[in-house]
Write a protein that binds this DNA or RNA. Structure first.
Lengths: 408, 408
DNA sequence: GCATTAATTTTACTGCTCGAAAAAACTGTT
DNA sequence: AACAGTTTTTTCGAGCAGTAAAATTAATGC
């Protein structure tokens, strides 16, 4: 029903969003620079910033007094009013939950970390746990949380159609439970679930300026294998991120048993448990270990580096699984860059040859050029950055840009 | 540089595009219905339609005089002024080229069909051939082609970055040549290349109302294997269709030799030549036959239907290749419907079991539900419909909606 | 103190939408 | 034939956001 009618309301929203977007990218800008960045006239920038300052969204930033050398009226920087809004960002991972309170300027205000075990969500359901922890943040930061506007949760797994719970997840006990409704009802703000893989991809682009307008695929290698896709200029919508389950793309029909219960998934060859299973010649159909201690995996890597046949065999099979997975990806979507992320990057040198070999067999790769391969060992920072960026952008677009014209 | 600034120009363009879109969907509408369909006020519809009628884009349609029973002022239908513009649509396939002259209302005005052989484009380069053929249309329909506004070409293969030629194509002699520039220079109108697979998917949705807002993947089975993706409400942009080469997604590492020169492509198992090669126990590494006569393939199908072991084996392998390909697709993009299209659908019953078996091993399929499988034997009609729809929509958005406010 | 320079704001005007009221174009009834 | 009833379409005036160009503001340099 609701078509994109263009009236003065939508024009205002559009141009305000443009201003906010430019400020998100730059941090703070003078009005003149803002006009140049958005393409709007100076007069419009004056009107828009005036309104937004009156609404407490933006604020003049005291200029640096000292180093004024240029003639002419000095430019006044405009930036976000950090206290305008706060968001709670939750990263749910297999072995920990991290809750961050972030202000409207994107600055971290407070943070809670909680370790998780496979039993955690059996004892205390995830939604309950989150309600408690966010309540804790509310007690610690009453002034800030009074202006809480949004809760965003990074999750791993397959979202169900409603987008309010996970249909499947590698995090034990997380699937099936409605995470959104209890939080929304308790705190009275919109709650969203985002796939960690995509956030990783978005965050990775933001952290590396040279990836500015590349289309990138990230491949997380660790206790799971997960992919995120990110194309420039366009945030993939809700429905579009439904199914990037690269780790559970089939590699070999009737192949090794995966944690997900299927057989032959890429993960069953390239996650830590898969590599260990191969290296120790454990039958492919043996149920995967619940968790691999980091030390054990590190030991396998050093064995591989030293040329141990069993170890290199494990990494070779992992590389082949990833390589053919990427080759198959290329047939559908050809990113300009592939970034390998996570603990498994330490073994990248052991897998590289097989990855390259598999990619060499891709028609699209041969014709359009192979994607650039890179590694990035820490995945936590980009995921957080991606979550901050996505959540604030959503807040900007849906609420801040949509504020009414004048406050009478 | 050019951001999406919202000013009165863009508002006009937006709302005019909304009107055109509603009319494209319905054919013709009364002003009141247009207001309801677009969400614009009656006053705005009056202003917009008045301007567009003055510009010769739309026209009042003589109402059906006879069956007026209702009281009140009779509604006047508004429709496209067919003579407002004409487009030439070209479908380049392996064995024929078809050129259609279509008016602004989407009605076919004239058509030229030309058979192609593998040697055709060696003797006469594709661009030259098209210039000649379109020139032929120009002679036959001088009045119409005087108002030619666009040339759109449906192609198979991988587009190069510029979008003006194919980096690779299954059509012999087509790759590498710039198709866009010579035509644009000769006829002075924009020329676009679109991937046949995607047009097929778009057209398929339009032809079957029950697919109205499904996300669909089409799989063409014939002398090649090709996929098209179509999601509702959003036309995939130029860059996004770059790489849907499903037929050349790897199925088996180092597998059967494909026409593209790679090994193990789905096509090498599921295109007609691949199935025949399997059925006749020709070694997988034997270079594929150039073209398979339809009769020969039909004969193989009937042998399969009668239970011939060699034949059913060929179709089984084809089904498995398609099934695992779809299963791998599901890990990245999960369409609600998969439509099998083309000559190969006649053998669908022989492949179905293996396809289902492979899909059953997909985690995403198990969790989010398997896509509905259908068949559609004729692919020509949906490709044409898709090409008409896409081309006229582009014309509407980029030129017609952008016409100036008043003609002084 | 005054010219010069560059950033903002003010002013005057444009174009588009919208709601409400008026006009138009029919049917049916008296 | 005039009039009432209905539904569609057009007209009118207000409101709002944008732009260009002029005016204003706040520094620097002589």
């Amino acid at each position: 029903m609701d078509k994109g009618v263009g009236d003065s309301d939508s024009v205002r929203r559009q141009n305000r969003a443009l201003v906010l977007e430019a400020l998100r990218a730059a941090g703070s800008l003078a009005r003149t620079q803002l006009a140049a960045a958005t393409g709007l006239s100076h007069a419009s920038i004056t009107a828009i910033t005036q309104a937004m300052i009156a609404q407490g969204v933006l604020a003049d930033r005291p200029g640096p007094r000292g180093d004024q050398r240029a003639p002419g009226r000095p430019a006044v920087q405009i930036g976000f009013n950090r206290a305008a809004a706060y968001v709670v960002l939750v990263e749910l991972e297999v072995n920990r939950a991290r809750l961050s309170l972030v202000d409207y300027g994107g600055t971290l205000v407070d943070r809670i970390e909680a370790p998780l075990t496979p039993a955690s969500f059996r004892e205390l359901p995830a939604a309950r746990m989150l309600v408690e922890r966010i309540g804790q943040l509310r007690q610690r930061d009453p002034a800030e949380t009074a202006r809480l506007r949004r809760i965003a949760i990074s999750v791993q797994g397959i979202l169900d159609k409603s987008g309010s719970s996970l249909a499947w997840s590698p995090v034990p006990g997380l699937a099936g439970a409605d995470l959104v409704t209890p939080l929304r009802d308790t705190f009275g703000v919109p709650v969203t679930l985002s796939k960690r893989g995509r956030l990783l991809a978005e965050g990775t682009r933001r952290l590396d300026p040279s990836l500015g307008d590349a289309s990138i695929a990230t491949v997380f290698l660790g206790s799971t294998v997960a992919m995120g896709l990110s194309a420039p200029g366009r945030w993939l919508g809700r429905g579009e991120e439904g199914a990037t389950e690269f780790g559970h793309m089939n590699h070999v029909p009737n192949g090794a048993l995966c944690r997900c219960g299927m057989r032959g998934c890429i993960e069953a060859y390239a996650a830590d448990y898969g590599i260990l299973r191969t290296a120790f010649s454990v039958p492919e159909t043996t149920p995967p270990a619940a968790a691999i201690p980091a030390a054990e995996f590190d030991h396998l890597i050093s064995r591989g580096m030293n040329g141990d046949r069993a170890a290199t065999h494990g990494f070779n099979l992992a590389g082949r699984a990833i390589g053919y997975g990427l080759s198959r990806l290329l047939a559908l979507f050809a990113p300009s860059h592939v970034v390998i992320v996570g603990p498994g990057t330490r073994a990248f040198a052991l897998m590289r040859a097989e990855i390259d070999l598999a990619l060499a067999g891709s028609l699209v790769g041969r014709i359009s050029g192979l994607p650039q391969l890179r590694t990035l060992s820490d995945e936590s920072e980009p995921v957080f950055k991606g979550l901050v960026a996505e959540t604030l952008r959503q807040l900007d677009e849906t609420e801040i840009a949509a504020l009414p014209a004048i406050v009478p």
